[in-house]
Amino acid sequence: MRENFLVVENVSKSFGGVKAISNVSFSLSGNSLLGIIGPNGAGKTTLINIITGFIKPDSGRVIFKGDDITGLPGYKIAEKGIARTFQIVRPFLHLPAYKNLIIPLYSKRVKSFRGGRFGDRDTVAIDLLEEVGFERDSSVPYKSASSLPHGYLKRLELARCLALQPELLILDELFSGMSMSEVAATVPIIEKLKAEGLTLIMIEHRLRELFRIADKVIVLNFGEKIAEGKPSEVIENELVKVAYLGAESA
């Protein structure tokens, strides 16, 4: 299954008159890191929403590990092992940070074996938070999510996804809103996840960090895929320069 781990075939979606995604195809091999970039409104989030079952595409298919998952309900797709973060952080504000992780830990996918970890769900939750950089012996993991700063919320999102023991992890602009030092601390976490065998898709506006860790990059503009290739190739692509950086810098 290393080759066609995730295949997106001719997917299109329009909202009223807006063609948010038109005829996008790509494929992703296992244990690689795909970057998706593109200017605001290019349709990146919409593409993720289609893959994760939050939006049904008008046409096209999404195939995960050989199974057609197009149009499956979101929770089924998550059960199959695709986890995602949200661009606009959506923590459970009324709960303490560590209780936020109870929800994925309570899902069918990991409920019985807790993702192969030891201890009750609360302990597993604290472990996971430590992995994404919450200070274990401080009060931070016990604080209400509504009182955490934005950088922590982003990492809480990441931990919520990791709790699901995903095979494919999709990060929608994880770095935006993080401070420089937080980004610097998070990049190794992502590299470690990949080293452990995870497949990742990252949507990023911080190209410098993304290009350092991505194996492949695809570029969206106005819902169309305009380029695909290694970071070094994409960076040289004229179309990308025009779309992404604006006409004058091309």
Partner: peptide
Amino acid sequence: NDRAVISSGI
């Protein structure tokens, strides 16, 4: 926030 619950596989 039900969308995050859905994407947590529930």
